[in-house]
Design a binder for these strands. Sequence first.
DNA 1: TTGAAAGCGCTAACAC
DNA 2: GTGTTAGCGCTTTCAA
Lengths: 334, 334
Amino acid sequence: MDNNTITIQDVADALGISKTTVSRAISGKGRIGEATRKKVLDYIEEHNYRPSPLAKGLAQSRIYNIGWVIPGDSGSRALPFFQRCMSGVLDVAAAADYDLLISMTYEGNISHLKRVVDNRKLDGLILARTMTDDECIRYLSGTGLPFVVIGSTDEKGVIQVDNDHVKACAELTSILLMKGVGKLALIGCGDGMVVTKSREEGFRKAFELQNKKVDEDLVFITGSEILDIEVAVEDALIKGAECMVCMDDFICTTALAKFKRDGVKVPEDVMIASFYNSPLLENNQPAITTLRYDPRGLGIMACQNLFKCIDGECVPEKSMLGYEVLLKESTQIL
Amino acid sequence: MDNNTITIQDVADALGISKTTVSRAISGKGRIGEATRKKVLDYIEEHNYRPSPLAKGLAQSRIYNIGWVIPGDSGSRALPFFQRCMSGVLDVAAAADYDLLISMTYEGNISHLKRVVDNRKLDGLILARTMTDDECIRYLSGTGLPFVVIGSTDEKGVIQVDNDHVKACAELTSILLMKGVGKLALIGCGDGMVVTKSREEGFRKAFELQNKKVDEDLVFITGSEILDIEVAVEDALIKGAECMVCMDDFICTTALAKFKRDGVKVPEDVMIASFYNSPLLENNQPAITTLRYDPRGLGIMACQNLFKCIDGECVPEKSMLGYEVLLKESTQIL
DNA sequence: TTGAAAGCGCTAACAC
DNA sequence: GTGTTAGCGCTTTCAA
């Protein structure tokens, strides 16, 4: 198209006014005559003028980028979650004329993140998940750069956006206990993620509330390979578990696949429930009892809060988003 | 840490030299005394000075961002591919002190992409996949912005980085034909992706080369739901297919799951092969015959080529990366 | 080999 | 309500 980009000065000259006025018309800051403003806006629209983000940024000491930090070594299973969060972040950011700059971290190597922060390419950033003893959080706390995490952390003063996993998992577990399902097996992966801890905590809390004791023989915190999970499922079955409580959708589908193979019927032979939803679970036959969250909502809230931080506004240290308990056939008592 | 950021002028003053000299020391452009250069570099290192990307960009008319454009509505199955490509892009970009700005497009809605391009936040961009009749490609061709696509397109003058899917699929298919496997069923999804077309083309080419005719009754281009695939697999079996040739890993795992459920044995009852690899396939029992590509390599090459474009260098319109044919038990004749 | 000065395109006091 | 002016922090001629 038009290659020679037009500047604010060109607009001003063409309209016989000063560039300050043009700037005011665009930004909406300061007083300006209605007629002038319209004239400018029309001209800009017609000639498709766009202010240089570089010049604007330099003048305002803002770069209009926020960082989106994801783990490069997360398993494929976590990708849909990040994707959906990101879509929320992206929409909020775009509405504020901000863009998303991506950064990948690896276990024990956050050099990509450091580079982008050191280079001052960001006005703030969002951490897509939290780990227990999180290297990124520790690093970022020392930088003074505004940031928000999706997930929870014990670190003080960190703005967090999360679902109330403890409460949600406690609620689902309580329902199972109240139904009279006695032997609940908990199956999760021993990744270092905070959410894993929270889910276990919720599970245990439900027992406490009903003055029951968790059967520690039925708590399996395993490796994250399919085989690890299958071994745990097998073991739980042998130990007489009446219901498999799976920490996430992947564990649940793995267990379901194994059941199918082994001819174990749900819920007749054993019940099953999951602490995290996914399309795969939704379409399962029989339908699976599970918790539903809204990852996109997390992204939206995280980004909104980040903008408040950047603008120096106050934001609650911890924002909790809702959840739904979906009770389905997989835990029906026949 | 140190909040009050230090500028090039501060460095110059501290060293009793001009900022021009400091600039030269950093950029390596222009003549400069070895002693001076070292002095500057040492000072910068010690005081952790980083040039403002904004100011640098404004002066050079470069923004040091490249766009990474992915479809927001792609199924979860495609995510690992994008993720691995991106990791390659990211590394090459970082090495050139570039960052990755993300942009999501949706079928029939590329407003996010347009915004970021219009706003001149990019020096160039990479399209993570190509569709037949691709809206993004059409739009970008009109902008003059350098861009590279991962995948292939018929559009002229577009820099492409891809695997030779036609050749790879033809090779795998040929091997099956030469083994004497007569009735090959092809199962793929009718998404609009170019790669799907290429795979089918490769399949057909293998038949041509051996003067055989494709059995059109055994070519299934279905919807992308699990059920669609299962119906096709069932149908193929009824029609006497001896080998299921699956367009990708998801189709293949879906077929395998169905076989397991139905008690169909691989390769005894039916053989199976896939045109795309994945960890799931690699660990399958029995091992699956498939093609192996290197997504990360695609990202690396795409980014390297993009930089050449940006710098005005010549790059081949089409770069092809290699592949491997992995022959495993799933197609063994017993 | 080094420095002075003029931009890059915008914003924000401060005047009028 | 509008214009003047001085930066924002770099790079890049052009002289010295």
